[in-house]
Design a protein around this nucleic acid. Structure first.
Lengths: 203, 203, 203, 203
DNA sequence: CATGAATGAGGGTTCATTCAT
DNA sequence: GATGAATGAACCCTCATTCAT
């Protein structure tokens, strides 16, 4: 039933709905997201929401898809610069970029992820996983000595998920005694030292 | 006006309700938890639930409080043994213990955390944070050379949150290509290599 | 989920809901029957309706079940007297009784049947069929010469369905030029003449 | 302000809509008929539907009007032949013709009538009544001895409505133990015997 | 204290109808 | 004329919470 929006007008409506969904989720938390609120914030009637989405779940899907897409769009262009840096600096720079994205719009994405990440049903991290793997591969290409590092798969998994979750949790925790930079450096140091040891060298 | 139950009977009812909440959450997911179901699984009337809890949120709070309490109760007794082990082995053993807890009762806690983790409102990790810090302090006391390691706070934060979330995510992801042991070893190696480098020694 | 009402209080509520359903259907027609209207006319909250019925369809079922039950309860006691009468008089008397039932309460049942009969899904005529067959069998027992009449099955079918529908249609048609008595006599005459011819005798 | 379509193009659109309505009603049942579906099946936009019909009810009216018109168009040409037959054969032939009409197009009209009959609001049987009366009058003209039969009006009413409804009910009831021919013969015999007795003769 | 029937606000969703294009 | 995106009232149903028993 739901039509794929071809025209510019429809496209704008769909975008407004997804955006509104993110706003409402960030502002009111997952149990207060209603289709009516989304539609109202989007400035359209509920009916219009159902013109473009089969149901509420579909809106959720689009919302989290948007976050992932934005994150990927933000990270991918950084890859060429990142691979030129020492690993520690590259990680810190990456984390800073992610932080910036999460904190835009009064932390909209941050709050959405905090509330919605468990909805693994909706939040598919795969594309994010892919771009980070791409980064890692480019990095390894540039630094072939890393090929000796063992257990790259586990490292990558830990970094992607542990790193992401830690970041989100930390940014969401106003009481944390730890500064963001300390955290970022900690992550960078951990990865760096592991790599060095594993590859048997100094980076 | 919920009273703190003094008597054994009341205590049992409260326990049954909290347990029932966890069962229902694990079994049916967050959007299908209703007070009726909880009461029914607990074997009491809905009215009784409201004798002991102000509202549904309070039950959620107790549920996640219970998980944290159980986790702490499981980890604390391990501390004396863990501090005797090399750091890498200690971490792996700790992770194994946590995994065992999460997978008990058909993964009840695992599913609850996966679904309820975003409810940071409910899930206060502080006590867990405390016991892990306690473990770390005991460890440092036993291995004074670690005091030279910098950034212990950041490390601990990363390990606690990143580790916890990574674990939960991995155990919840049936498609993961990574084995649990690889993951645990990866985490342990990362921490170990960081410690070694940071403390300038070999553990 | 839906509980079977054991207690007098609940029984009364269920009855009120079924009654209200009939009232609303008769008054407003099938496309204007809403659960809220039913509940409101019954003097209960919507929630209560759903305490006793799984869904709207279930209420419909109960409504039409009630009509059938009432009709059977009205007809069965007449059987002993009817079988004593000549066939023509018996039919007329039966039709008069049915008419009386249909016109009670401002024609509530009449309008309900007119609107709802097509909902064969809801309106199971089987019990009515049974009682009419019972009447016919008693009649045949009392007048064994009728056993010679052929095609009793078809006759019974035609009388039950054709008769019922004709009656309902006629009573619902305020413009009809035909009087009820003429109609009843026509039906009676038709059946009588068929029986006489078929059994080769005069009744 | 719906205009009566003068032009052939408009006429075709109106026809397509009415046809689509019947198709959708037959296929999906009364509660699933929507203007969108009708328009879509008709191959026009919803807007066009409202060019030609004031509202959904008007479409229903046209749909049932079409059924009646078709039935009349099917029956009228048969009259000359029917009046030449013995009454019993004539009735059976008539019923066969009606059955054929009802079962065309996978029973489209049959299902529509079954579902929509209660919508007496929509289904005006008058034209059908007229053509059947016409048939009867032609028959009486051809067989003047029938003039002696009393209660022709009641008979005609019963035959038209009782016969129609019985037919529809029977054809719609897949579980019926009674064959169509038995039913048709039963109806024919009933009418015949009544006529014979009433007119005091053998037909 | 325990119960569970009763409540009704509110959620997701549909669809007749309109109107700008 | 034709279109179909947009609308929002209204539908069915759920469920947290209360309160009479």
């Amino acid at each position: 039933m739901t039509r794929k929006p071809q025209q510019a007008r429809s496209r704008a409506t769909v975008d407004a709905i997804v955006e509104a969904g993110l706003i409402v989720l960030a502002r009111e938390g997952p149990e207060n997201v209603t289709t009516r609120k989304i539609a109202s914030v989007a400035g359209v009637g509920v009916g219009s929401l159902y013109e473009y989405f089969d149901n509420r779940e579909a809106v959720y899907g689009a919302m989290f898809g948007r976050i992932t897409k934005d994150a990927v769009a933000r990270i991918r262009p950084l890859i060429p610069a990142l691979v030129e840096l020492p690993i520690r600096d590259g990680i810190i720079r990456l984390l800073d970029a992610v932080r910036a994205l999460l904190e835009e719009n009064d932390g909209r994405y941050l709050y959405c992820l905090r509330h919605g990440m468990n909805l693994t049903r909706h939040y598919k991290l795969r594309p994010l996983e892919r771009v980070l793997n791409e980064l890692m591969m480019q990095y390894v290409l540039r630094h072939p000595e890393l090929m000796r590092a063992t257990n790259l798969a586990a490292m990558s998994y830990i970094f992607i998920y542990g790193g992401t979750f830690t970041l989100i949790h930390h940014l969401s925790d106003p009481e944390s005694a730890l500064g963001f930079d300390e955290l970022a450096e900690g992550l960078a140091d951990m990865v760096t030292s592991y790599m060095e040891k594993s590859a048997g060298m100094s980076l």
